[in-house]
Amino acid sequence: MTSGGGTFSAEEVAYLKTLPAVADATARRITYTEAFKAYCVERYGEGVSPVSLFREAGLDPSLIGYKRIECAIARWRKAMGVPTVRKPRSARTAPGTTPFSPGKAPLAGEPVLTGEQGDIRDLLIYQQVRRIDELERQVLDLSSRLEQLDKSEVHPGA
């Protein structure tokens, strides 16, 4: 947020309003479409990082803010009645199925953290989101460097 203090500049608001994921934007608030909220909650449950989801939608974390992204996902999941804890990768089901689909045994004992435990979990998730974003940036940078090296080997002197 270039304006500082948690506000968006007029240019940033204009940009945000052009995005399909954004229903409305003001200097202090972004309202997301219901479709984007549902998409994020579903994909987050599949293990996709919140930062990646927002970035894919044109909502760069450096503009939106990491805390805003973290709070939005948590708020949407709570509003949609999604448990606080994601399923471990091995326990997740294929798209379009549920743990109770024919031929599948139900998953037992998935914990739902609340109160102090939930606050600790939220803090850990926040820290992981930031680390994942940092690693994603490094991967993009290294991929770009590797691509440049490959091009220089194919076309020496380029």
Rank of each mutant, 00 (worst) to 15 (best):
L19M: 12
L19H: 12
P20S: 04
P20D: 01
P20Y: 02
A23H: 12
A23M: 07
D24E: 15
D24N: 15
D24L: 14
A27D: 04
T31H: 13
T31L: 12
Y32D: 00
E34R: 10
A35N: 10
F36G: 00
K37P: 02
K37L: 03
K37D: 10
A38T: 09
Y39A: 05
Y39K: 13
C40W: 00
V41R: 10
V41M: 12
V41C: 15
E42L: 10
E42N: 11
R43A: 10
Y44I: 00
Y44D: 12
G45F: 03
G45P: 03
E46L: 06
E46Y: 01
G47F: 03
G47L: 03
G47D: 05
G47Y: 03
V48C: 07
V48G: 03
S49K: 01
S49A: 11
S52G: 09
S52N: 11
S52L: 11
L53P: 00
F54V: 02
F54I: 02
R55A: 06
R55W: 08
E56N: 10
A57M: 08
G58H: 08
G58P: 07
L59G: 02
L59S: 02
D60M: 12
D60G: 09
P61Q: 06
L63P: 02
L63M: 14
L63I: 11
I64S: 01
G65A: 03
G65W: 04
Y66I: 03
Y66V: 04
Y66F: 14
K67S: 14
R68G: 08
I69H: 01
I69N: 01
E70W: 12
E70V: 02
C71Y: 11
C71E: 10
I73E: 04
A74K: 12
R75T: 13
R75G: 08
R75N: 12
W76Q: 09
W76I: 05
W76M: 06
K78V: 08
K78F: 07
V82W: 00
R86T: 02
P88M: 13
P88R: 15
R89G: 02
R92M: 04
A94R: 14
P95T: 01
P95I: 01
P99A: 01
S101Y: 14
P102M: 01
P102E: 03
P102T: 01
G103M: 05
G103D: 07
A105I: 04
P106D: 00
L107N: 09
L107P: 08
E110L: 14
P111R: 15
P111A: 14
P111H: 14
V112A: 11
G115I: 04
G115Y: 14
E116S: 10
G118Q: 10
D119S: 10
I120V: 15
R121W: 15
D122E: 11
D122A: 11
L123W: 07
L123G: 05
I125S: 06
I125A: 05
I125K: 05
Q128A: 11
V129M: 13
V129D: 10
V129Y: 08
V129W: 05
V129I: 13
R130V: 09
R130Q: 10
R131D: 09
R131L: 14
